[in-house]
């Protein structure tokens, strides 16, 4: 199980979800999980593919090929606009 969070405008396209995937079997990465999500939700997929979207695993920014393990928290982060 991977907890998947969507922030900012990405939250308009999906609720936060608990994704049932066998991480070891599919060698899960943010890129692979993005593909899985895009199959089910084309509009979300388009948003996640935007160049400026970053990914965090367990609240740390990582690359799109970072290995994801069962129990991890994956977050998709659009460009930040605080301050």
């Amino acid at each position: 199980m991977v907890k998947v969070l969507f922030f900012g405008r990405l939250g308009d396209f999906s609720e936060n979800i608990e994704l049932k995937v066998n991480c070891t079997e599919i060698e899960a990465t943010p890129k692979k999980i993005r593909s899985l999500l895009s199959e089910d939700n084309v509009n979300l997929g388009k948003q996640l593919a935007a160049a400026q979207v970053l990914v965090a695993v367990n609240k740390v920014i990582v690359g799109w090929d970072y290995p994801i393990n069962d129990g991890d928290e994956l977050a998709f982060l659009p460009p930040v606009t605080g301050g």
């Binding site: 922030f7 900012g8 982060l77 930040v80 605080g82 301050g83």
Partner: peptide, 26 residues
């Protein structure tokens, strides 16, 4: 600190214009 905060910290703003919410772009 302000420059860094605006570019790095994980905050997202949206604004209500009329009766619609719009996400703010950086």
């Amino acid at each position: 600190l302000m420059d860094y905060l605006k570019l790095k910290a994980t905050f997202w703003k949206r604004v209500m214009i009329g009766d619609q919410w719009h996400w703010v772009s950086p």
